[in-house]
Design a protein around this nucleic acid. Structure first.
Lengths: 174, 174
DNA sequence: AATATTCATCAGGTGTACCTGACAAAATAG
DNA sequence: CTATTTTGTCAGGTACACCTGATGAATATT
């Protein structure tokens, strides 16, 4: 089997993984899907996980959103009890958004579900997969950088930083 | 390193993969993201890829959607030139939805992008990853089945079938 | 032929992720 | 102390994925 065909077959399996994860999440109505972490309210939770107690305006800047959208999502999250909005004392215009305990747990949940999928893997396989994912992830990093060398998008910058501190504490490529 | 920690680390890398794919897709505004294949208009394209020239009603049934939603998406796809709507001759109530050439290419695109990520992998690594993904995917299959033993959701059934014929032509677990 | 069923459409609605424009309160600069 | 900038809110808008209810047209049943 040529490399190219093998690549395609493997790519197919990755797509399959994505689809299966999707169906699995739908079947077991757990959470709305960890991909939701990248949009709207999820984004905000993610940003606060990286750094808590941020002014609403700062959130908007980091997430490349308008202040209005940000305000909307923050309000929705507040209604769900996932964040708190407190007026700053030093500057009464500004609102400090913080994760509540529930909010903190919410972000954790989205990551904790996945290990289930890995329980059938041996130690060796986990090592192999880990190494391979590192390679693949590095590759995607590069693709992103070549598409946007200076990473203008603050949100993307943030995701990168988040990924680093969260999953590769020793690796300082970024 | 214990198995559990290793599992978690690997899970993290999988999440990272998901995030990077997302950012990558956003940066290089290629396609709206292959996840879109699971919702709305994407669903319909997917169903038609599995079996073309379906009555609108049949689409609705397979996708677990109301006839109205289905009609809406089909219309949108028609406007984009991805499907055609033709009144059946034998039964003039029913509308047969078919993929156009453009529509067929559209579904292919969402899968063809991924191999890029795999170009840095050696032959050995591709084999390893393939085997591991098989295991992981099987595991998720099982989880889905245990959550919904008879797979009542037609759409899920369809995704499964699609995955099979597309990526595991020899494997007949489903 | 009259009735009931089927398929699709129209109209209207909800929720989520966004956006622009207008504007007020608070802080800072001149 | 007035003028400007900053932060946030209100109002209103678009697009997408859905949904329910009502209705018309074609087919099937009696």
């Amino acid at each position: 089997m040529s490399d190219l065909i093998k690549q395609e077959k493997t790519a197919g399996k990755l797509v399959k993984l994505g689809m299966l994860q999707h169906v699995s999440e739908e079947v077991s109505k757990k959470h709305p899907d960890y991909r939701m972490l990248f949009q709207g309210q999820g984004k905000i939770l993610l940003a606060l996980t990286e750094e808590d107690d941020l002014p609403q305006k700062e959130l908007a800047k980091r997430l490349d959103m308008t202040a209005q959208s940000t305000a909307e999502f923050v309000r929705k999250l507040e209604k769900k009890g996932l964040v708190s909005r407190v007026k700053s004392v030093s500057d009464k215009r500004i609102i400090i958004v913080s994760l509540t305990e529930a909010g903190r747990m919410e972000t954790k949940k989205s990551i904790q579900v996945i290990p289930e999928y890995l329980k059938d893997l041996s130690d060796v396989e986990l090592d192999q997969l880990g190494n391979i994912l590192d390679k693949v992830n590095d590759r995607i990093y590069e693709e992103i950088k070549s598409a946007d060398p200076t990473l203008h998008n603050k949100y993307h910058q943030m995701v990168m930083a988040y990924l680093l501190t969260k999953f590769d504490p020793d690796d300082h490529k970024f």
